[in-house]
Amino acid sequence: MLKIKKYGAIDIGSNAVRLLVANVIEEKNKEPQFKKSSLVRVPIRLGADAFVSGKISEANTQRMLDAMQAFKLIMKIHGVERYKACATSAMREAENGEEVAATILKNTDVKIDIIDGKKEAAIISSTDLNQLIESDATYLYVDVGGGSTEFTLFSKGKIINSKSFKIGTVRVLNNTKPENKALFKKVQKWIEENTSDYKRISLIGSGGNINKLFKMSGRDSGKPISYIYLNAQYQFLKKMSYQERISELSLNPDRADVIIPATKIYLSAMKWSGARKIYVPKIGLSDGIIKSLYFNKL
């Protein structure tokens, strides 16, 4: 007997807000299958508020209210039975983050959980990541967001260490060069200290920017991108203007600027860990929310 359940996940990031609707297919004596049904992404750059002025603006609060109302209607149309909304570093660091969450709850009945970096990494790691990890290999998992980046070292199928750093694409764009240099130094130290005892490390990358870079590469699903290719792409993108990235590469306006610092973060992680290739499975916080909801971990 086949059963299909519908779950929703709202990921409130620093660069964009996403709604994922997924079908969970249950069949007797089989593992449940998780299939994406709908993904809606809206470019509300909360990080531009939180990391510059320290608070979410009235304009973006209203946009958030509109987005949550729209998401509720979309989930109603899909017949979603359970959903969860999680906010990351922008809402976490904004001095009025809790206030904005309370306003949204009052006006839309959508409850937003503002989660810390450790919880974010734990939710993401509950995805299908384990299916990608070879039992005898070592991987550095890197999830680049708008406000923070989560690093997790896996070896022989087990988590060795995990750390969240306040280095994200929107934050890098808005910080001064000395601030960014200091942040990159902290990340370098952590990666080098934690990977020094391991050989032949590969990266696993997640986030909208690495997904876009993978798509641009034309690689088959499951095939890695090399350090050499990613570095060449980085140099190519840097030479183009913001307008050229939009008109010639068809990048969304809110992707065309952040893709540069995102690529730099992935390249830096590869350099400091000695990784020569990066795998790009399509997983992220919203996928983790769906699985955590289904297994009652949230």
Rank of each mutant, 00 (worst) to 15 (best):
T103Y: 00
K84W: 15
A232L: 01
T169P: 01
V80F: 10
K158L: 14
I260R: 10
I77K: 09
V187R: 02
G145Q: 11
R18D: 07
N296F: 02
Y139L: 02
Y227M: 04
R82C: 10
S241A: 13
S273C: 08
S155Q: 08
S292D: 05
S125N: 13
K106F: 06
S148C: 03
A262R: 07
V24Y: 08
A269G: 09
M240K: 07
G205P: 03
L132D: 03
K271I: 09
A50M: 02
Q69V: 07
D257E: 11
I104S: 07
T88S: 13
I278W: 01
A122R: 08
L203I: 07
K118W: 06
V21K: 00
K166R: 13
A262M: 07
K55V: 12
K111T: 08
K72M: 04
I4N: 06
F51T: 08
G208M: 08
A67M: 12
S273L: 11
L46H: 06
E58G: 01
R18I: 14
E192G: 13
G208P: 06
S125G: 06
D287A: 10
K186Y: 00
L19C: 03
M91H: 02
V40Y: 13
N180A: 04
G168A: 01
K166E: 14
A9Y: 09
F151Y: 15
T169I: 05
R63H: 11
S125F: 05
I204Q: 08
